[in-house]
């Protein structure tokens, strides 16, 4: 019932796509400009949600699912947890203009824009990556694995080893965070001095910099 409008389906997709990407750019500008870290975290959540919408529009439902769950959910919560721990509410304004980062990002952008001249247009059905390996997945999955969701089939079987790697990555993150955050805090010189200033006799904190 949505194809009777005279405007082909793809056009609607494209119009909404452009609008969403515009919003995405707006959010990014917001993230650059806003200095309050809490607001930055909130905007980063919005960024993920918008990204997930764009992914849905581009037919990547599974990816959108993950991005919404991870970007908007877990990573917001983790960021809030961090903000609670570091108790830093505002970012300091850099006192000098940062030239090198601008240069690097402009250089990378320039290379990309230059490189895009010869790239196939978005959504064309005869792009190289639509005609080489992908057709096999689309046509053969039912015969090989018989799973309706091709993404699951590719993820778990055709490229199952990548997914094993992915699980290892998340495992590494788990034990990494376990290791980092269950360790006793080490106290640097600045903190130690401040503490010694606070109470005159100062606790003779052992020099845990490995010099003991």
């Amino acid at each position: 019932m949505n194809l009777d409008s005279g405007i082909p389906l793809g056009d609607w997709e494209a119009i909404i796509n452009v609008a969403l990407l515009g919003l995405l750019l707006l959010v990014t500008i917001g993230i650059i400009r806003v200095r309050n870290l809490f607001a930055v975290v909130m905007l980063a959540g919005i960024y993920s949600l918008l990204m997930a919408l764009v992914f849905t529009l581009l037919d990547a439902v599974d990816v959108a699912f993950t991005e919404a769950a991870v970007g908007a959910g877990v990573s917001t919560i983790l960021s809030l947890g961090t903000l609670a721990l570091i108790d830093s509410r505002r970012e300091k304004v850099p006192n000098r203009f940062q030239f090198v980062p601008l240069l690097v990002s402009l250089a990378a952008g320039a290379v990309l824009f230059w490189g895009m001249q010869d790239m196939p247009a978005v959504g064309s059905a005869d792009a190289p990556n639509q005609v080489h390996v992908a057709p096999y997945y689309i046509t053969q999955t039912q015969a090989d694995i018989d799973v309706p969701n091709i993404v699951t089939a590719v993820l778990a079987s055709y490229r199952g080893f990548d997914t094993l790697g992915e699980v290892t990555v998340i495992f590494t993150a788990g034990i990494g965070v376990m290791m980092l955050l269950s360790a006793m805090p080490v106290i640097g010189a600045r903190r130690r001095r401040r503490r010694e200033d606070d109470d005159g006799d100062g606790d003779k904190a052992p020099n845990d910099g490995g010099n003991a």
Partner: peptide
């Protein structure tokens, strides 16, 4: 496709 700018950008 080796003549395309995209591949060169990829290499970069």
């Amino acid at each position: 496709v080796s003549d395309t700018t995209s591949v060169r950008a990829a290499a970069a």
